[in-house]
Amino acid sequence: MKGLLGSLAAWPLLLAGCVTGKYTHVSVNEPLLPEHMAALSPGTDTLGTCLDRLGAPNRVFEYRVGPDRTAGMALLWVWRDESGWGIEVSGAVKDVSGSVSYDQLNKELPGCVLWFSPELVLEGWRMGRIGELLRGRIRPSPADQG
């Protein structure tokens, strides 16, 4: 009986939407599969062959700029396929409303980067979290140098 009363007592909170559990699945873009990557051959494959096999990347960056302004490039693919449970609590105290949520989806996104020489030959590739893959990528701008 106590359990029943407890369930009834929780209804006002639950009906008001103050406490909700959630199960979420997020899928963004197709992942590059390991077998696709294993087929790549640094030193042999070119920008053209890689684009044919992997399709268009999400981003393209300048890489290894020479004094004569020749440059290589880095291509980035990024995707997301995650699911997880979470809980959201919301309410209002003295005219101040707010909500707190926690879920397991706040992870760094997986991705893959391919680096090409100025001659557009594949130098190498790496899969991992994009935060690690792109660390220190952006060169200083006049605004940064202040």
Partner: peptide, 19 residues
């Protein structure tokens, strides 16, 4: 379902890079 919600988000893109 009031106390629990199930959500799915499916996103795909068309991308063209011309060099």
């Amino acid at each position: 379902l009031l106390v629990i919600n199930f959500a799915n988000q499916d996103s795909r893109s068309d991308r063209v890079w011309v060099f």
